[in-house]
Computed example of a mutant assay.
Amino acid sequence: MKHYSYDEWLSYVKDEVIGTIREEIESHLYTCDQCLEHYLQAVSEHESSLPVLSNENSFTDLVMAEVSKQKEFTESPTAVKQPVKTKKSFYQQASFHYLIAAAATLLLTFSGVFQSLATYASAVEAPQHSKEKKHTVTEGVIDKTFAWMDSLEKKEANKK
Rank of each mutant, 00 (worst) to 15 (best):
Y30W: 09
K69Q: 14
A65I: 09
L62T: 03
C32S: 04
L40K: 14
Y30E: 15
N57H: 07
H46D: 11
E37P: 01
H46A: 13
A42V: 00
Q34L: 11
E75F: 04
M64G: 02
S48D: 13
K71M: 07
E75W: 03
E66D: 11
F73K: 03
K69P: 01
D61H: 09
V80D: 02
Q70P: 00
L53E: 09
S68D: 11
N57G: 06
V63K: 07
V43A: 08
L53P: 02
V52Q: 13
L62Q: 13
D33C: 04
Q41A: 06
E56Y: 04
N55I: 02
S49V: 07
Q41H: 10
T74Y: 15
H38D: 05
Q34G: 06
H46G: 14
D33P: 07
L40W: 08
T60S: 10
E47C: 05
T60G: 04
S54I: 08
E37D: 10
Q34M: 06
T60V: 12
D61T: 05
Q41M: 14
S68G: 03
E75A: 05
F59W: 05
S49N: 09
E56P: 03
E66P: 01
L40S: 05
C35Y: 00
C32A: 02
S68R: 15
C32D: 02
S54T: 07
F59R: 06
A42P: 01
K71Q: 08
T74F: 15
V63A: 11
L50H: 04
Q41C: 08
E47H: 10
K81M: 13
N55F: 03
Q70M: 13
P77L: 05
T60K: 12
K81T: 04
